[in-house]
């Protein structure tokens, strides 16, 4: 295969474009990059106020429980929702130059991953302030991030590839994402659902990821490696299939997004 230089060329392009997009996104407001910290911090504050202060739901730990689930879950839903229309938005570009179209959603998910890094650092600070002490299983976190990134990429590729053919799905996808958010135990723990549904519940990869995040961060347990392996392998297969699909449709997208 002689497309190695092409791959390098395009990965350079993705890096430059991600940096440019991030810069351009922040240049529109006065506080610039500071919003990367303020926005998620404000969001966390809202949840703290409502659940930790107003509702006093259950134990004090509920805020921790909530944030350790909510933050990875929001990363997933936001990134997938954001890349959903990346192909349609890239219409102007693809009419001017020939690009492998898979680059368009990739740029978006990389952009989100960079921003998510800041949020995760914030989460760590919050956890430490709250008196959670790091333990050995925290070393599994990078694996968790990679797994989640792959899952996001796989979902984003599938959805962004389909949307140009069925633009109406743009309305359905956010509803579906909200459903995933509610079905993944963001707001409740797995113990609150009947035991016979646990297997079914954890078949949802997002639910399984959140479960593992909490086991690591809150209960000092190692993640369930089997489920991580399963998600990673599934995502990699999906990414490979979508890569082939995008390659087939490369010359077709400029026509339908006309």
């Amino acid at each position: 295969m002689n497309n190695l230089p092409a791959i390098r060329q395009y990965s350079d392009l993705i890096l430059v474009k991600v940096a440019a997009n991030l810069r351009s996104e922040t240049s529109g407001n006065y506080l610039g990059y500071l919003w990367w910290i303020f926005e998620p911090a404000l969001r966390m504050l809202v949840y703290y106020l409502v659940f930790g202060f107003l509702l006093r739901r259950g134990t004090d730990d509920y805020v921790l429980f909530l944030l350790t689930g909510l933050i990875p879950c929001i990363w997933f839903t936001r990134s997938v929702a954001g890349s959903m229309i990346s192909i349609i938005q890239g219409k102007g570009l693809m009419m001017q130059v020939h690009l492998p179209k898979i680059i368009l959603p990739t740029i978006r998910i990389c952009q989100d991953a960079v921003k998510e890094t800041v949020v995760i650092i914030l989460l760590f600070i919050f956890l430490l302030l709250y008196g959670v002490s790091p333990s050995l299983p925290w070393f599994a976190l990078p694996v968790m991030f990679v797994t989640e990134f792959l899952l996001i990429a796989a979902s984003a590729y599938i959805i962004s590839a389909v949307i140009p053919f069925f633009p109406d799905l743009r309305i359905i996808v956010p509803v579906g994402l909200q459903m995933i958010m509610f079905c993944s135990g963001t707001f409740y723990s797995i113990d609150m659902i009947p035991a016979q549904y646990h297997r079914l519940f954890l078949m949802n990869p997002v639910a399984s990821l959140l479960h593992n995040y909490r086991n690591i961060l809150l209960y000092n347990q190692w993640p369930d490696w089997n489920s991580l392996l399963f998600i990673t392998a599934g995502s990699l297969v999906a990414i490979y299939v979508m890569w082939l699909v995008f390659r087939r449709l490369d010359h077709f997208y400029p026509r339908i997004t006309l």
């Binding site: 810069r23 240049s27 001017q96």
Partner: peptide
């Protein structure tokens, strides 16, 4: 090609050139 209005001409020139297929 792919101009980002909020960025400088220099960055846009590089971006544009890369989109046109150059290293």
């Amino acid at each position: 090609v792919g101009f980002e209005p909020a960025l400088t001409g220099r960055v846009n020139a590089i971006l544009s050139g890369m989109l046109l297929g150059y290293h």
